[in-house]
Write a protein that binds this DNA or RNA. Sequence first.
DNA 1: GACATTTCCTTGCATACGCAAGTTTCTCCC
DNA 2: GGGAGAAACTTGCGTATGCAAGGAAATGTC
Lengths: 151, 151
Amino acid sequence: MASERLTDTELRAWQALMHAHDRVTETLDAELRAAHDLSLAAYDVLLRLARAPERTLRMTELASRVLISPSGLTRRVDRLAAQRLVRRETDPGDGRVALARLTDEGLARLRAAARTHLRGIREHFTGRLTEGQLRNVSAALESVAGPHTPH
Amino acid sequence: MASERLTDTELRAWQALMHAHDRVTETLDAELRAAHDLSLAAYDVLLRLARAPERTLRMTELASRVLISPSGLTRRVDRLAAQRLVRRETDPGDGRVALARLTDEGLARLRAAARTHLRGIREHFTGRLTEGQLRNVSAALESVAGPHTPH
DNA sequence: GACATTTCCTTGCATACGCAAGTTTCTCCC
DNA sequence: GGGAGAAACTTGCGTATGCAAGGAAATGTC
């Protein structure tokens, strides 16, 4: 295998990853915005909070789960707080840490959006693959990303 | 299969796609910037031009190949033109169409960066998968993105 | 028990992008 | 052959992001 050339298989896989990701995220983002006025990024934040105990997470932890920089998260949460979907609090035990808590309104919004989103994921991604393909893709891409943290 | 819930397999595949894509693109972008002062986005433009006849493409066509909006491409090409990696021309036959042409300097830059980039793709993506996995991933993701346009 | 250090978050600044509106050049059609 | 309409960009404006620097709170050290 030459060291400066990609095989055809490698090139196809690489381009397919890029193309599929862009296409799917763009579509899902557009659908969420149209139906629920929520970006995919906002949805992701609400979802992580909904899954967390007390529907609350520290900013640092939340940032790492949604794959964004700390400063990016500060502003993203600010926008959600302005819509009353999230409330900001300070950790009583440690004055440095800021907490983000999902409000009831945020949870309701998330649940409503989930219908659209899950249908979208299936329509534009998983539904186009067989059960076996899904397993193959999961296994392969998980080994690329490192084992997925279970959150 | 419930209509409002994703199966575990579906969820895993979805999260793996997001996570793998983010991780790989972020790493490759950082490597290109560090070693060659080129963003992944810039690299992509140079690559498409290098593959095109006359190393030249119309803006519209280029935009669709690099998956960006027309206005986004205008500025991206402007930045590359400012670095002399690309030259802008007007189509002699149709005054509306703007052409982007890869300069010799741009080609040299691309070739230098390609070493880094191809090694990176292999190190962070394809090299972690078996030949069979690559084929599975390609086939699966191509059916998600629609058949890949051969460019 | 204060001072240095570390941790956690936020803000200033710069960058990159998309949409909608505008400009220029063709094309059509009567 | 001239005016209506379409095509192919480009620009104004708003948004979202990251990095580096800053501020506030906790921790460690002597």
